[in-house]
């Protein structure tokens, strides 16, 4: 495993299917990941070795509670990826990060087309699952 990448402190909100997978992938290539979920059961599926080696730091907390979030987020964190299963939850948490924290990159998953457009106009980096799926399908068709 590569050395811990001290330059990039990444926080991930939401440890569902996408959150946990991304956290593990990033940790495997040397990023230090803080991952927050409201439900401790979701954090249990993270691999123990990555946690004990210091690559993954799971934390239980409600990211929609500003005071709670301030206690959880590392002051050195410069990238935040918001991956809960709900568009409006992701929107609110992104907005909290923008207004209350000094974080250069806020990346959020917004699946609704219009909300996605609005949020990218508001300066957030947005990811739309449907768009990704469409792109992948198009690539598949074009490669044949």
């Amino acid at each position: 495993m590569s050395q811990i990448n001290m330059m990039s402190k990444v926080s991930i909100i939401g440890c569902g299917n996408s959150g946990s997978k991304i956290a593990i992938n990033f940790a495997n290539i040397g990023y230090q990941i803080d991952i927050i979920d409201i439900n401790y059961k979701n954090l249990m599926k993270l691999p123990q070795n990555l946690i004990s080696e210091g690559y993954l730091n799971p934390m239980v907390g409600n990211a929609m509670n500003i005071l709670e979030l301030k206690n959880l987020i590392d002051p050195d964190c410069n990238t935040c990826i918001i991956l809960t299963g709900n568009d409006s939850t992701n929107a609110l948490i992104s907005q909290i990060f923008k207004n209350e924290f000094n974080i250069s990159k806020i990346i959020c998953k917004i699946n609704d087309q219009i909300t996605n457009e609005l949020y990218s106009n508001l300066g957030f980096i947005t990811i739309n699952q449907n768009d990704l799926f469409n792109k992948k399908l198009l690539d598949l068709f074009e490669s044949n």
Binding site: M64, N86, D87, S88, T89, A91, L92, I93, Q95, I114, T115, E117, L118, N121, L122
Partner: peptide, 16 residues
């Protein structure tokens, strides 16, 4: 009852 839904709907209503 959901603050995030309230916020997002207001943003969509006003900004979009």
């Amino acid at each position: 009852k959901n603050d995030s839904e309230n916020m997002l709907s207001c943003q969509l209503a006003k900004d979009y």
